[in-house]
Every structure is written in C-alpha cells, then in structure tokens.
C-alpha cells in the first residue's frame, strides 16, 4: 500500500507520455490551479482552526465529549468523531480543522484517526454542493434532496466506523 502513491504517479506519467501530453507544462498548469485552491481555503481554515483550538483550550470539547461519550460508546463510535459528523455536511474547512485536531490528539493511525480519515474522504460538504448546483439554475424547491443527501452522510459515518474496525483487524 505504501507504493500506491508513487506507482499511481508513475502510471499517470507513462499514460501522459503515450498520449503525447506536454507533461511538464500540464503539471505546472495544474499546480498553478492547486495554489489557487489552497489560497482560497486559507481564510476559512485559519478562522476555523482558531475556533476549534479555542473550544479545545477552554475545555468545552471535553465537556461535550463527556456528554456524548456514553451514547457514542454504546454505538461503538469514537467520541471524538461525533463533532466531526455534525459539522461535516455544513463546513469543509470546519471538518478539516476537527480532522487535524483528531490527528494531533489521537494520531492518524489510531482507531479514531482512521474513522475520521475515512469519514473525511467519503463525504462532501453537502449543503455547499446543494447551494451551488440548485443556486446556479434558480431552483428553490429541492424536494427530497436534503433527506437523501443527509441519509447518505449518516451511512458514510456508520460505514467509516465499520471499515475502520475491519482495517485495524487486518
């Protein structure tokens, strides 16, 4: 699995060579786009990481986790995951801030860390996508979109825990 990333890159490069793509030009163009993305998430990330760090320093997250943990334990959810499940559909930056916080406190390879990684990788900022796409064509009545999208998010949260349990056993 550790070779996945270099292999993936090599395959893309060979594929590009065969298709006669000007590889380095394409690379620099893409990377330029990447820096725009990074710049555009910077303000959100700064604001929300500060907010999450403040919540943590004030002891509020400990209180919240203490409050949630009995129910979370019953369901087999790591308690650190609960705030992230709640924030994930609303804010991409906010859930990234919570994700890094879990990595810092529990480690990326801990059970909570793996759950959070899978959750972050398998869900999107649901409300943002709905707003962008329906907003672009002036649709106001979204019918059952929200119900279906949030059920999908909930499924992803459950599956993240299930898959993390399986991955840790292997």
């Amino acid at each position: 699995m550790e070779l996945f990333m270099p292999l993936f890159i090599a395959v893309v490069l060979v594929f590009g060579l065969i298709k006669k793509v000007p590889i380095f030009d394409a690379f620099t163009d893409g990377a330029r786009d990447g820096i725009k993305t990074m710049l555009s998430i910077a303000p959100t990330l700064v604001g929300l990481i500060v907010a999450v760090d403040m919540l943590k320093a004030s002891g509020a997250t400990d209180m919240l986790c203490g409050f949630i943990s009995p129910a979370a334990k019953q369901l087999g959810f790591p308690e650190e995951l609960v705030p992230m499940i709640l924030l994930r559909p609303v804010s991409g930056g906010g859930s990234t801030a919570l994700l890094t916080n879990i990595y810092k406190t529990c480690g990326p390879d801990s059970f909570a860390g793996i759950c959070a990684s899978i959750l972050a990788g398998s869900t999107e900022t649901t409300f943002y996508a709905i707003a962008v796409y329906y907003g672009s064509v002036g649709i106001k009545k979204v019918r059952h979109t929200l119900l279906a999208a949030l059920s999908a998010d909930f499924t992803a949260a459950v599956m993240a825990v299930v898959c993390a349990k399986l991955l840790i056993k292997i």
């Binding site: 993936f8 590889i23 394409a26 163009d29 990447g34």
Partner: peptide, 11 residues
C-alpha cells in the same frame, strides 16, 4: 497532486 491530475486529465 493538482499537477499530476492535470496530466491525467489532458491525457
């Protein structure tokens, strides 16, 4: 990653 994925897209 953005650079690599752009190569993939153009290919």
């Amino acid at each position: 990653w953005s650079g690599i994925m752009e190569i993939a897209r153009r290919g």
